[in-house]
Write a protein that binds this DNA or RNA. Structure first.
Lengths: 109, 109
DNA sequence: GAAATTACTCTATCTGTCAAAGTAATTTTC
DNA sequence: GAAAATTACTTTGACAGATAGAGTAATTTC
């Protein structure tokens, strides 16, 4: 299980990416992250909904109530045009961040 | 300039790595990070000294006063055996973290 | 109809980062 | 040789993001 401090700062991008692929609701995203990472990372509920609030406030995503089918009411999120641009930027930043951290993490032992 | 949120959680490793190479003092580490990253990342002084405190408390590094030669008094840090083991672990965690984040950052556009 | 699952929300707390301000020694400049 | 610049470290208080914990509510399973 990866410590959340190592993922911190990338959470917005991860969630934005999943919403970019298709409209999604919170619980689904939570399960999807666990699935794709093979449980190497799990987002905590409280964190997830804090991210939604942040992204919606910045107008990177929008929400709408979905149909109730298998449990509680679902709140779906879709990415905005601004959100798509932001995601592309974040991916570039990630590449640079990787390079920089690798400077200090490689060439050992 | 990389946002500190993206580096957050890796600072301990970066500083530990530099002290692993050789004993170093704070100001030197600060300059070395700017140099190696080509100013793509700069650590803030307050942050640096907070990291030292954290690492020393965990007994991953030890300190000793050095000679005064070109300015104020220098406090040098050396890595402990525990620190070396920790660093190796952190490097493995970094590899895994990269893989996990890449899952969400690749295959776009 | 009780228990489990799906699904979202809110509050309080913790941790890491950092701005700001301060102390002090040495070196450079004029 | 006094002032300014640089080297070097420390402390305090504030802020943002992550999360434990508790709660609400609908649907599904047994």
């Amino acid at each position: 299980m990866i410590r959340s401090d190592l993922i911190r700062g990338h959470l917005d991008s991860i969630i934005l990416r999943l919403i970019f692929e298709q409209d999604r609701y919170g619980y689904e995203i939570s399960k999807e992250i666990s699935l794709r990472t093979d449980n190497r990372f799990q987002i905590k509920e409280a964190t997830l909904y804090a991210v939604f609030q942040r992204l919606e406030k910045k107008e990177l995503i929008e929400s709408y109530m979905g149909s109730v089918s298998q449990g509680g009411k679902r709140k779906y999120y879709r990415i905005t045009t601004l959100g798509k641009a932001y995601l592309r930027e974040m991916i570039e930043e990630w590449k640079e961040t990787k390079e920089v951290i690798d400077l200090f993490m490689e060439g050992l032992q």
